[in-house]
Design a protein around this nucleic acid. Structure first.
Lengths: 190, 190
DNA sequence: GTTATAATTAGTACCAGGTACTAAATTATT
DNA sequence: AATAATTTAGTACCTGGTACTAATTATAAC
């Protein structure tokens, strides 16, 4: 091949795609997949500014840890301020992985998760569970946005607490929710 | 040191703790931290059956990926059946990482995410966004449970569609939601 | 068909972070 | 002092690279 370099471009974009999906692929494996030499893969990577395996693993690990986008952790987002029993504030940075691919609008359940976990965190009890919620997605949130959620306990009777959460992106209200949370005193299972 | 080996035991348990918190530490760094030689660290690791850096990174990455408990994918759960515009069914297996550590009860937003993403998937449009939702968490769901969500389009006027979602664990209704979803025709950004 | 250039492949020296092994030195215990 | 546990040293080898130089092959343009 020469000047055109269509095969090269195609291979490189495929390569970038593969590595984005699976950062654990070695140059040798990639060379096998594309039927080219290891050196070619290394040239491709250097042209595409894609670092080596170990670096990719590191960044992939770091990306998967600190943001705690959703899933394993108790709180979704970063807790900025809290006064248990009264209010709490958390911040969530919307990443592209939290958004629809087509338009990069954040998927609703991420905003819900931030608000829900904040509402539960604000409750002054060992164990608290959401019993009901009413939510409004007032404006679309886009990847890159920083969502600030503020939860306030608005009433508390017995084991039933109502928490209001308002989430903003730069002053604009993007989400509102009213969460009814029930507290359980230990052994709160069934 | 000899028979007792208190210093050794202490160092080894500390080492295990450190590596659990941060799998990226090299033997050299660990040797520095504990003031011993690299060889000692390697002996410790082999006695503790702790693999080398690269392996640790791999397993840490895999642990953070495959479940996709929430985040990157378009649909939360596994799509079992769908008739776009009418109904959809999805299944979600609740893992311990989706639950509160204290009582292994699933955190509400996972059920919400399953229902929300299913409601959006069921809509017959390029782009659909949740505008509002009313949800009820009727029974606690525990780690290990298989949640079946069924979404049905209950009304459609203009760009506004109402979808009802009912989630069950073995016949028992654990979640109900009414989602108001708005469709956008391309370029649906702002 | 020849030629200039792009693209690919080969080869070498070097590096980090290891494994696996052998052997020596150190330290604690009795 | 003798013995056993522990630690350190040293060597050969491995993977998955970087960085560099040089040779080879393909292709478009003339």
């Amino acid at each position: 091949m020469a000047r055109g370099g269509k095969a090269k471009n195609l291979r490189q974009s495929e390569l970038a795609r593969h590595l984005a999906n699976n950062p654990l692929l070695t140059d040798e494996e990639l060379a096998g997949m594309f039927g080219v030499s290891i050196q070619t893969i290394r040239l491709d990577r250097s042209e595409l500014q894609i670092p080596e395996l170990r670096e990719r693993m590191k960044t992939a690990l770091q990306a998967s840890r600190p943001v705690r986008s959703l899933g394993s952790d108790e709180l979704v987002g970063e807790l900025l301020d809290i006064q248990v029993g009264h209010y709490g504030v958390s911040m969530l940075k919307i990443g592209p992985e939290m958004s629809f691919r087509k338009n990069l609008v954040a998927r609703g359940h991420h905003l819900f998760a931030q608000a829900n976990s904040l509402a539960v965190a604000v409750i002054d009890a060992e164990v608290a569970l959401t019993g009901a919620a009413r939510v409004l997605f007032k404006l679309p949130v886009k990847a890159g946005d920083l969502v600030m959620a503020r939860a306030e306990v608005s009433s508390q009777r017995g084991n039933k607490t109502v928490v209001k959460v308002i989430s903003r992106v730069q002053e604009a209200i993007v989400f509102e929710g009213i969460f009814t949370v029930f507290t359980l005193h230990e052994e709160g299972n069934q």
